[in-house]
Design a protein around this nucleic acid. Structure first.
Lengths: 337, 337
DNA sequence: CTGTATAATGGGAACGTTCCCATTATATCA
DNA sequence: TGATATAATGGGAACGTTCCCATTATACAG
């Protein structure tokens, strides 16, 4: 079991100094003779030399490692965001360390500590509980995934649920629906508001008066969708179409409708928001608004790279990306009965 | 902008030597006076000292970083495996670097190079094309995710599709089905065989003769499920139940059945394998066999830890984990007509 | 032919830890 | 009392790079 070759072994093999070897493997085109360069590369090949990134980091204070901290990779939203991040970072030679906070404050702070300890070059984080100040205290370039206002000192990238909602409701209006119910999710006040705004704005713009009784608020779960759907159905007349704050709620609503013997979209149209995986395989498949997950990851990564390279603008940026309408089988023009 | 405090600053602040500080933060209970220990910790607190893991790695040749290399985190199988890995590794103080090979040989080898460069402590990999020899050449403790025989020199952890298939087919037999069709996936010869074996073994054991015409092979896609289902339906008599090699095929078959106006499970039962996310939200929801994704990740991580700590057995291990039957709405006893 | 700019290379310090060995103080035993 | 074990601490080398500065060789202008 022999020791791994170092830059010095390569230097000896090639008959040059370690400085020269260093210059060759840094490969920044700096003054090194073509012939010696080839001799060095040959020596690298012969010895099977692999540069020690740890030693390099020690000297340069850069690790080419960034952290992606999210609540739970198991949540269907994140894998695609992660892919977007990874594809960008990869191309720039950065590896991505994953951290799942599980919505736990302690784990979240533990990860931030890890990032400092390991001298990571950047942080992409969907914050859970950590305060803006503590996040800033890491001293590491950071981009926040999401658009919560508490983090307005950071570059932020998230989905534009206002525009997404407008796309969805507009689609229903375009089909001829006039009495449109909404099932909003609670938890996140910020996004609730933006959805409500989107809903109201479309109706007003279409000359439809807003009936507050058509707006119901439930948890962001399938059970929530069931509750919301049932309460809307009790109205007289019931709505001919329903916009749901996300697909999980929409699927709950859809299942409830089917269980009640209703025909979707014949009797009632349902539209969701996010386009989760399961939306494609409900019966009928769910009409929804795509969430630009991959792009969110990509853009966040790009912002982070700019920060790392020091060419980010002085003021923090907020980027909201809208998805697009994806018409499947749960929406149709209202029936005339 | 002041320099980050080092162990030497802490030593000065606490009035001890850097050796002593090192001993305190290593915290291996080694000979250091309780009183000085407290003084050091106080100094750490005062200065906001954070240990530099890079420098530490440089000296110890251990990074507390492992790599999880998979084809694509976006594929619904992996996030849960990743969680299993992460939860175990986390508890042991290891961070996980993600790598998506995208089934690309070049990216895969690039990642292995990265692992060597960055002196990662371990590798968990679902291999794509890399040869066993090259994998061994990294010199890094490695556990293979999956059970392909080419990698029999490594610890391997994967799903047991033989047992899973037996669970599924047994379930159909238990319900009284005698004429049971199978839609196998092609691509992976190994797993196809284990599923076929499982199917045959259950039938033989139940005293049912095996009719080769009931066995059809299609691609691992929804379209494949459609093809397979249609060809089985043309048999006379058609099967009263169908086992599909995975849930995607099963969902394709289910959609085809519904489109043909059949009642599932009234007219025909369908059972899948894997329990992907979408299985829960088909209509009716798909009966299937759970895939122990989380456990696969967990166990693989445990194997890796054993290797890293040097207390893995001499012979490589192969661990196959079976899921369990998950009865939902697509299976029922055969109708009597 | 001398002086000076330019290119190529070499040598040593530095990064911040950990590990080994030495030293000192204190306790224990013959 | 002197020898010896034990505990606590300090000092310096080492890990493998990169960076800075020095040196040498070469080209070119005056």
């Amino acid at each position: 079991m022999k020791r791994r070759p170092t830059i010095i072994d390569v230097a000896r093999e090639a008959g040059v100094s370690k400085s020269t070897v260093s210059r060759v493997i840094a490969d920044d085109g700096l003054g090194v003779n073509q012939e010696t360069k080839e001799r060095v590369l040959q020596a690298v090949e012969n010895l099977g030399y692999v540069r020690n990134a740890v030693a390099s980091s020690m000297r340069t204070d850069r690790t080419n490692l960034i952290m992606l901290a999210i609540p739970d990779i198991t949540n269907p939203y994140w894998p695609e965001v992660a892919r977007g991040v990874q594809d960008v970072m990869d191309a720039e030679g950065y590896a991505v360390v994953f951290a799942n906070s599980d919505w736990d404050e302690e784990r979240e702070t533990e990860y931030l500590k890890m990032a400092r300890r390991n001298r990571l070059d950047g942080i992409l984080i969907n914050t859970v509980r950590v305060s803006s100040d503590r996040l800033k205290a890491t001293g590491i370039p950071t981009v926040v995934l999401g658009t919560r206002e508490e983090y307005s000192d950071f570059d932020r990238v998230g989905a534009d649920s206002y525009v997404g909602t407008k796309f969805a409701v507009q689609h229903l209006v375009d089909m001829g629906h006039r009495r449109i119910g909404v099932i909003l999710g609670q938890l996140d006040t910020k996004s609730k508001d933006s959805r409500k705004r989107g809903y109201v704005d479309v109706l007003v713009n279409a000359g439809i008066s807003v009936d507050e009784s058509l707006i119901t608020i439930v948890p962001f779960t399938r059970a929530g969708g069931e509750t919301g759907f049932k309460s809307l159905l009790e109205l007289t007349p019931p709505p001919s179409a329903i916009f749901c704050a996300n697909d999980t709620i929409a699927i709950g609503a859809l299942q409830t409708a089917l269980a009640a013997g209703l025909d979707v979209p014949g009797d009632i149209s349902i539209i969701g928001l996010d386009d989760i995986d399961a939306a494609m395989t409900t019966h009928p498949p769910l009409t929804t608004i795509t969430k630009p997950k991959y792009d969110i990851g990509r853009q966040a990564a790009n912002f982070l790279l700019e920060q790392i390279h020091g060419d980010a603008p002085a003021m923090p940026r907020k980027l909201q990306l809208a998805g697009e309408l994806c018409v499947r089988g749960t929406t149709a023009p209202p029936s005339n009965k």
